[in-house]
Design a protein around this nucleic acid. Structure first.
Lengths: 186, 186
DNA sequence: CAATTAATAGAACGATCGTTCTATTATGGT
DNA sequence: ACCATAATAGAACGATCGTTCTATTAATTG
């Protein structure tokens, strides 16, 4: 709601994604946001809450971009376009992998950060399920296909990140295509 | 070569995998290894090198376990057994995901840690390729199947980690099975 | 046994970083 | 113009943690 608060969340989003959670401090975030240190602590009680805000900030843009894909076709393309988005992001953002997976990896103990990461992944599962359903797959098939598509998406980002090579995303897309053809809908 | 050095690497492996790279300090590692602080710094110049040793220590056990799988069958089973190993590890180790992926995620800047993580992933790619080749797949098919199988393995660990649910591994295994049937070898 | 080396416990340093505090300055509403 | 609130710059504190140092004790070898 507050403009400053959103500036901080956006700056944290950019900075933490690019350089990691441990190595970028509060001072870097306030500098990037163009905001004073005291202002940050007026909006957030501690750094952990800034990280949570950064994750939520990213997810908002994430889901918004997925919802309003203009070029998304029907049928299998409704699913395969998810891999194309992944390719776009890998180029734009420098290929630093999944922000939420990295957040979870950095914070082993349970807590709000793990909760946000888990919630995001569950949202992705639902999104896949919905698209399969809308594209005409039967319920029995969607419940079987959804986890497989999800695993391919997760693997695509992870592999592109560690290998530093976007070709893994294309391989995942091909596998998804084959999967969807093997269990056709409509 | 040195026993102490190996103790330290093993302790770091266990501790860092369980609790993460940032949140466990040198003091915790020496305590777990049953070794004095000075001894650690006689064997390693800095913490980063301890982390590298921990990664290499894990990879040694990792590859050793994969090489001498007794129950690994021929054909498609040579590949599918990789997913079964993953299931075992997810149970034994508490499901904290891929150590190497997490190491890369925690260290955004290039350096020895990223190098070890990348080398491990490339080794996994070669392992998959070799198994496909030994199981009788033609070269043109192995080069197409290898990245897809790799992405499924990566996605399986990542998804099981973030969701806290081993069922994702089974979904990946099923998808791999289907893929191997669609492009049969032998 | 002697002598060199490795290992130990623990104090101490230095840097980083999250967080708080103070004093000053801009901002917005009535 | 006035007042309350928010924002700013920057100093300061406290804790953590990687690293070094010292003095003492155990282990090894010739």
């Amino acid at each position: 709601m507050s403009k400053k608060r959103d500036d901080i969340a956006g700056a944290a989003n950019r900075l933490l994604y690019r350089e990691g959670f441990a190595s970028v401090g509060i001072d870097r975030i306030v500098a990037e946001a163009g905001v004073a240190l005291g202002t940050l602590y007026k909006h957030f009680p501690c750094k952990e809450d800034v990280i949570v805000a950064a994750l939520l900030h990213r997810e908002a843009g994430y889901l918004a971009a997925l919802e309003q894909e203009a070029d998304r076709g029907g049928g299998a393309d409704a699913i395969l376009s998810l891999f194309d988005r992944l390719l776009d992001w890998a180029e734009e953002e420098g290929g630093n992998g999944c922000f939420f997976l990295r957040a979870a990896a950095d914070h082993a103990e349970p807590g709000p950060i793990r909760d946000v990461a888990l919630a995001h992944k569950q949202r992705m599962l639902r999104l896949i399920e919905n698209r399969l359903c809308e594209a005409g797959w039967r319920a029995s098939l969607t419940s079987r296909l959804t986890p497989s598509i999800f695993v391919l998406l997760e693997g695509a980002v992870a592999a592109a990140f560690t290998l530093g090579d976007r070709r893994a995303i294309a391989a995942a897309r091909d596998a998804a295509d084959l999967l969807l053809c093997a269990y056709p809908g409509e």
